[in-house]
Structures are given as C-alpha cells and as structure tokens.
C-alpha cells in the first residue's frame, strides 16, 4: 500500500513538473504561434543552472556556489531566459522556419555541450554534488517526497494562475491579435516582434523552472535527461491537451506521461526478450503517431476550450471591474 502511494507521489511529481513545461510551451505555441523545436534546451538550462548555482563544491566541474535554493532556481530560470533571448533576438523577425530551426539547433548544441564540456557540466557522467533543500531536516524518504510534491503543485498552480492572468491582460490580447493578424496588430503601433520575443522568453523561463524542479527532485542531471525525445513528449502533451488551453495542457501532461510510463512498463514486461532492445523505438513510434494522428483528426486536442463559457466568464470579469 505504502509502496503504491510512494509510486503515485513519484508519478504525480514528475507529471506535475512536466506540466509546468507544457504550460510554458502553451504560452509560446498556443497563444503566440511560436514554434519551439528545442524545449529540452530551455528545460536543461534550468536544470543545469539550478544545480550548478545551488550545489556544493565539486572538483570535477563548475559549481559550489551553494546559493540559497530559491535563488538557485531563479538563476536556472534566468539561464533559460537568456538562451531564449539570444535565439529569439536573431530569428523572431524572420519567417517562422528560422525560429523552428534555431530552437531545434540550440537543443542539439546544448546537449552536445553538456556532454562534452566536462569542466562545466560534468560531461556524460552528469552533474553531482547537489543537496536537496531542507534535506537535513526532512531526510530522504517518504515525507520529503510528499512535501516536495506539495511544493511542486504549488508552483504548478502559481504558474497556471500567472499565465491565466497574463493571457487575459492587455498584453495577452495583443499576443492573440498578433497571432491572428500580424499586419493589423502592427497598425496599432505595436511592434509584434518585441511582443512575441517577450512571449518566447517568458515561456522559456517557465520551461527553465520545470527543468530546475526536475533536477532538484533527482538531485542530479545528465545529458541523458535532456534528449530530444523530451521535446516531443512535451509537444504531444500540449497537442493532446489542446493548444491554447492551459487546463488541457496540464491534463495532456498527465495523460501522456501516464501512457508513456505504462507503455514502457508494459513493453519491458511483456515484449519478448529479443525485442527488448527495440522498446524505445516502439515508444517513439507511438509518440510520433500521437502527434501526427492528433493533427490530422483532432487538431483542437482532446480537451478543447469551451469558448462560450470562457467568453461569458470573461465578460463577467470585465463587468465586475467596471
């Protein structure tokens, strides 16, 4: 029983952490139409940033700043934001293929750098020497994990609230206006490129938060954790949940993460021995089929936004303020 609960806590923690990244992607893709082909790079920047800033001194690689944990986490998020700023600055004014290619490229380069630059990141061995915050008081067991889950859920809700407020603010309306009709928005005297760049950066900072939490949870990060498949998983979560819809994004994250874990478990358990080497390939094909299938048959996602309700809700909201 306690084993099952432990597992549920573990599962929910990871799914909630990934939900945060999906929310970040939803701001970029769902609300601004920005294609991010390298989610994992921003996730990874947050993860590595947090551990390097918050970790104890290591001889093998950079680190040992032992920053107060929240500061380390924020530092990680800033690393992600900085990377988004560089990529966005260079590509946001060009046609959208450039952003797609550059973000994809940044993910390849980031993983490559983390794998090779041993003095920076510990190389293929990964980054060690991070002590989970409050670990001296809470230990390493069940209690710690339960409390960490609560912490993650609070951040998930905070991120959700923040994004809901953001997309209902004048800035959010502007974002959608640009998504619908760039020239019209331009004629309002706003520079669409700046507004989209801000969205790219905010979304990436949120992905960085997700990565920071992920690395904190495992107190470890290595190039193995930032492979391109994570980008595809996060996309699949958003597409299944329904782009543009924050609740759907979270639901999609839990659903896809459950399906992924279950299929991995099922394949490792029931697939014949000679097929074991190929379980990864089968899972990748499944993710590919989910992405393509959804785009073909249900592009609005499984949980499409109920437009009427949200609009009347918004109308009420506006009235209350007046």
């Amino acid at each position: 029983m306690i084993g099952l609960i432990s597992y549920l806590i573990f599962f929910t923690t990871v799914a909630a952490i990934l939900s945060i990244a999906v929310l970040g992607l939803n701001l970029q893709w769902g609300n601004s139409g920005l294609f991010n082909g390298g989610v994992v790079a921003f996730f990874g920047a947050g993860a590595y940033g947090t551990l390097i800033l918050g970790g104890t001194a290591q001889s093998a690689h950079l680190g040992g700043f032992e920053l107060f944990y929240p500061l380390a986490l924020i530092g990680g998020m800033m690393c992600a934001g900085l990377m988004a700023w560089v990529v966005g600055k260079l590509t946001i004014r060009l046609r959208h293929d450039y952003l797609a290619i550059a973000t994809f490229g940044v993910a390849v380069a980031f993983e490559n750098l983390m794998r090779n630059a041993e003095g920076l990141s510990g190389g293929a061995q990964g980054l060690r020497g991070f002590e989970r915050p409050l670990h001296a008081w809470l230990g390493d067991g069940f209690t710690y994990n339960a409390i960490f889950l609560v912490f993650v859920l609070i951040l998930l809700i905070a991120t959700y609230r923040f994004l809901e407020l953001l997309i209902r603010s004048p800035y959010g309306r502007l974002l959608r206006a640009i998504r619908e009709d760039e020239t019209a928005a331009q004629s309002l005297g706003k520079d669409p490129a700046k507004i989209r760049l801000a969205s790219l950066i905010i979304g990436s900072v949120i992905m960085g938060l997700s990565g920071g939490l992920y690395a904190t949870f495992y107190a470890f990060i290595s190039p193995q954790d930032i492979l391109p498949i994570l980008t595809f998983q996060i996309w699949a979560m958003l597409i299944v949940g329904g782009a543009g819809n924050n609740k759907g994004a979270v639901a999609g994250a839990f659903l896809i993460w459950a399906a992924w874990t279950a299929s991995g478990w099922g394949l490792s358990r029931f697939a014949p021995l000679e097929m074991q080497l190929y379980t990864g390939s089968i899972q990748f094909i499944l993710i590919g089929l989910v992405i393509v299938g959804m785009l073909l048959w249900r592009p609005q996602g499984l949980f499409p936004e109920k437009l009427v309700i949200s609009q009347s809700g918004r109308a009420k909201h506006v009235k209350n303020r007046e």
């Binding site: 139409g33 294609f35 082909g37 959208h96 293929d97 797609a100 595809f232 996309w235 597409i239 390939s281 089968i282 990748f284 094909i285 993710i287 590919g288 089929l289 989910v290 992405i291 393509v292 785009l295 073909l296 592009p299």
Partner: peptide, 16 residues
C-alpha cells in the same frame, strides 16, 4: 505552422 509539428512526428515514425 502545424506542418512543422507533423514533420517531426513523421520523422520519428520513419526513423524508428
């Protein structure tokens, strides 16, 4: 824009 997503999905299916 969805075409880019679709192309990633297609790539993963073909490769695997």
């Amino acid at each position: 824009l969805s075409m880019v997503f679709a192309s990633f999905g297609v790539a993963m299916i073909i490769r695997n």
